[in-house]
Simulated scan of single mutants.
Amino acid sequence: MDGSDHAFRLLVEKYRNDVFRTVFAVLRDQKEAEDAAQEVFMKIYSSLSQYENQGFKTWMTVNGSFPVFHLYFRYFTSWNLFVPDSDYLVLQLF
């Protein structure tokens, strides 16, 4: 294992509980949250070259968690907009 892999392993160990709590709060399923947390760290690893010394937790959320949440919501949720008349809009989840 080279130095950057070791450093990333330390980041995972430091932030894994924070990431898991964040994704579990959204997904409310332990297995899905575990999978999503792993995807967050894979996304973070692939995006490390874009990190520019801003707050790491904030950067990690924007570059790791949000894209993963987007994928999960897209996969698990269908949105159907139905307008019964011009007075209101009903948003229906399937």
Rank of each mutant, 00 (worst) to 15 (best):
T22W: 01
E32K: 15
F8S: 07
Q50P: 01
A25V: 00
T22V: 11
S46W: 06
Q54C: 12
L10C: 08
N53V: 02
M60K: 04
E32D: 14
E32H: 07
I44K: 00
Y45I: 00
Y15Q: 04
Y51T: 09
R21H: 11
D2R: 09
M42P: 00
Y45T: 01
M1D: 10
V12G: 02
V23K: 03
V12R: 09
K31A: 13
E34V: 13
P84I: 01
T58A: 15
L48I: 11
V26R: 11
S47P: 01
L11Y: 00
Y88F: 10
K14S: 12
P67W: 04
Q38E: 09
S78V: 07
Q50A: 08
L81V: 14
F94V: 09
S47D: 06
A37W: 00
G55I: 03
T58P: 04
H6Y: 09
E32A: 14
L93I: 15
N53K: 12
F56P: 01
F82P: 00
K43I: 00
F20G: 08
D29E: 14
Y88D: 08
D29C: 14
W59N: 06
L71H: 04
W59H: 06
H6V: 13
F69D: 01
S65M: 08
N80L: 11
Y88V: 05
S46T: 12
F56I: 00
D35R: 05
L93P: 08
S4I: 11
Y51W: 15
R28F: 07
V62A: 12
N63A: 12
W79E: 11
Q30M: 07
S47Q: 13
E39I: 02
D2W: 05
Y51N: 07
L11C: 12
T61S: 09
K43F: 01
T58E: 10
K31T: 05
M42H: 02
